[in-house]
């Protein structure tokens, strides 16, 4: 008697479970949560927790794993120093140069490469894009060779032939900035060009046709139709450029990976790296990170207002 009851119970439990599990697999209300689970987990563990942790560490002197002293705003007060100013200055100048060079040039390349009657368009597109395929290190090796300090190095040898003197590229602020900006422009222009090309292809052909009927010439077509309609993509490109400008690290690392005479090439992220990993000063590094976060978030808010991302999505 008792045995029978036990048997039926044992028989029932798994089948009920199986049904429950089956329900989960068929449920349309539950399924989406399982689909987005990887993002939620990764968000909580690798984004939210570290972000909170950075805030926490920025108010502490971090002595080792799980050993820290609360020191209030001291880390932030320490930010008022020459090195940090110079880092912010480098990032700001670098960003401004990138904007001045990359936005007009990539827009020009995109507009010209979008001309139907141009021969070899696809080859040119690929050629301009190839630098974007290289890692910053490989690109940096090529640039270090071209802009070597020695008189025999490529660029210096040309300068000498033209009657100038050879330059110590990595030892001056101006030439150092020139190196970083040209490396970044060379590497990134293909990507921004592709952005603009996709923006151009979204402009309906009829607009140009009706303008032609009205007797518009190439230049007025460009200023009256192309430019205004490229505005959203230009703002987007501007935003990423500011981002890339303020988070820059590799472009500096490849030229001054060990020491930087007179803080040439010291950027905000390099300053974090230097303080946190080379001087083991995690708390101070975190405070720098928070300031960088504030810069980036401000830019984000401005961008969101421009785009109205929140309004647009259903």
């Amino acid at each position: 008697m008792t045995k029978k009851v036990a048997d039926s119970k044992e028989g029932n439990v798994p089948s009920k479970n199986i049904q429950r599990i089956k329900k989960i697999f068929y449920s349309q209300t539950l399924a989406p949560y399982i689909f987005i689970l990887p993002f939620l987990l990764s968000f909580l563990i690798f984004f939210l927790y570290p972000t909170i942790n950075t805030f926490f560490m920025s108010f502490h002197e971090v002595l080792g794993m799980g050993n820290q002293n609360f020191i209030g705003l001291t880390n932030y007060q320490r930010l008022f120093n020459q090195n940090f100013y110079e880092a912010i200055r480098t990032n700001t100048l670098y960003t401004i140069f990138l904007i001045i060079i990359l936005i007009p040039l990539s827009m020009l390349f995109a507009t010209l490469l979008n001309l139907k009657y141009l021969k070899g368009r696809n080859f040119f597109k690929s050629a301009l894009f190839v630098p974007a395929l290289t890692s910053i290190i490989v690109a940096g090796v090529a640039f270090r060779l071209l802009f070597g300090e020695m008189e025999t190095a490529f660029v210096n040898s040309i300068l000498i032939r033209l009657g100038f003197s050879a330059k110590q590229w990595t030892l001056n602020h101006d030439t150092g900035m020139f190196l970083m900006v040209s490396l970044a422009s060379w590497k990134m222009i293909g990507i921004y060009m592709i952005y603009f090309i996709s923006g151009l292809q979204a402009i309906p052909e009829e607009l140009y046709e009706s303008a032609e009927i009205d007797g518009a010439n190439t230049i007025s077509k460009f200023t009256k139709i192309t430019l205004p309609l490229l505005k959203p993509i230009s703002i987007y490109v501007l935003t990423i450029l500011i981002f890339d400008g303020y988070r820059m690290f590799g472009e500096s690392f490849v030229f001054w990976n060990e020491g930087m005479p007179g803080n040439i090439g010291l950027t905000i992220v390099r300053y974090i790296y230097q303080q946190a990993f080379q001087r083991n000063n995690m708390g101070f590094g975190s405070a720098i990170g928070i300031v960088l976060l504030a810069i980036v978030l401000t830019i984000n808010l401005i961008q969101l207002r421009f785009f109205g991302v929140f309004k647009k999505e259903e």
Binding site: Y49, T51, T54, A276, G289
Partner: peptide, 8 residues
Amino acid sequence: PLEILMLP
């Protein structure tokens, strides 16, 4: 940018 999160 991930660089902000690299320490934690």
